Computed example of a mutant assay.
Amino acid sequence: MRTFSKNGTLLGALGLTFALAVTGCGKAETGESDSGSGEGGDQPLNIVFLPKNLGNPYFDASDAGGKAAVEALGGTFSEVGPQTASPDAQVQYINTAAQQKASAIVISANDPKAVGSALTQARDGGTKIVTFDSDTEPQYRDLFINQASPEGIAKAQIDGIAEQIGDEGEIAILSASANATNQNAWIALMETELKNHPNIKLVDTVYGNDDDQTSFDKTAALLQTHPDLKGIISPTTVGIAAAARYLSTSKAKGEVALTGLGTPNQMRSFIEDGTVTEFYLWNPTDLGTLAAYAAAALAKGEIEGKEGDTFTAGELGEYTVGANGEVLLGEPTGFTKENIGDFDF
């Protein structure tokens, strides 16, 4: 197994598990808001999380981390969002949060530009904007909380599939939506990384739109279209689980390798039955926690989002804002049959 975390603690703090995510999301809850404050210290802290879509286990976990952090700060947490991830689906939720004078909106953008006008209006009204997981164009937000370096994510997945297929053969990518900035950045870097593997050929890239059934159907179509396919990379938690579900009951099980980004709880059975050998991820709960603390620091005026600004994210420790307003959580970790039992999210 290859481990890509920096210091072995990236996937720590697992007291905020997926079980908390299931019980913690789906509605706004209020803490002791008199101890939270907006910029200048005279406004209650009110942070809205806006994932790509609701009902996604990955965002359930990340939003649970955000909820716990906001409540620890004495603020009010809300989770809102569309049922389906699409470019324009998030705009109405941004507008509503801005009208309600939210201290900050924490958003994983379905499109780098489609939400730009709404976010600009929200910022003009005093709401701080933090993107996480999937960024907008930089002018539309104050900070971007990046889950891991794009280069590290791309290399982990290419190295993983190369090892599993003997470093030769045809592979395909099952992505989320065609407009997702994080997916497209990773795919571009994976294509570059493939130059180090001349005997591997990327034959197709398809999009499941972070929908389980669509991703399931796209997996079936890939195998029908490319009968010599040796492996699939799915850099999305919905996509990899749907692809694994298809492979687990098909003749391709054990013949077509699958890797990508997934959570241990959703992929556990597929690791145990041999459908998947290894996949990767960071801790999504920690990602939500970090995003919430960053949003609160902005809302309170403790930081401005400039390079060199520092803030503390609870038990995660101190973070520094990098170039282009980016804050990096860490690097991904590989999950296999040997270590997956150690994680619960």
Rank of each mutant, 00 (worst) to 15 (best):
L54H: 02
Q121F: 06
T219Y: 01
G75L: 05
G152M: 09
E278Y: 07
G301K: 06
T225K: 12
S86V: 15
E168I: 09
E39L: 10
F132P: 08
A102E: 05
I165W: 04
F279R: 05
A243N: 06
A295N: 03
M1D: 10
F77H: 00
V70S: 02
A292R: 02
D60T: 15
T136G: 04
T225S: 10
E191T: 12
T120F: 07
A172T: 03
A295P: 04
P112D: 03
I232Q: 04
P82L: 09
A64K: 00
K201Q: 14
S103T: 11
T76I: 15
I105H: 01
L11F: 12
V80E: 13
S62T: 00
S117V: 13
K155G: 04
D124W: 08
S62L: 01
I161G: 03
D111Q: 11
K253T: 02
W186K: 08
D217W: 10
L298I: 13
I107E: 01
A85Y: 01
L298A: 12
I187E: 02
T205E: 07
E338N: 15
V276Y: 06
R141N: 01
E32K: 15
V276I: 10
A299P: 08
E32P: 12
I171A: 04
F345Q: 07
V115F: 05
F132L: 14
I161H: 01
T236A: 11
P51L: 01
Y207N: 02
Q139A: 10
K6S: 10
G262N: 03
F345D: 07
G125S: 07
G41A: 07
A295K: 03
A241M: 09
A154Y: 04
R268P: 15
P44N: 07
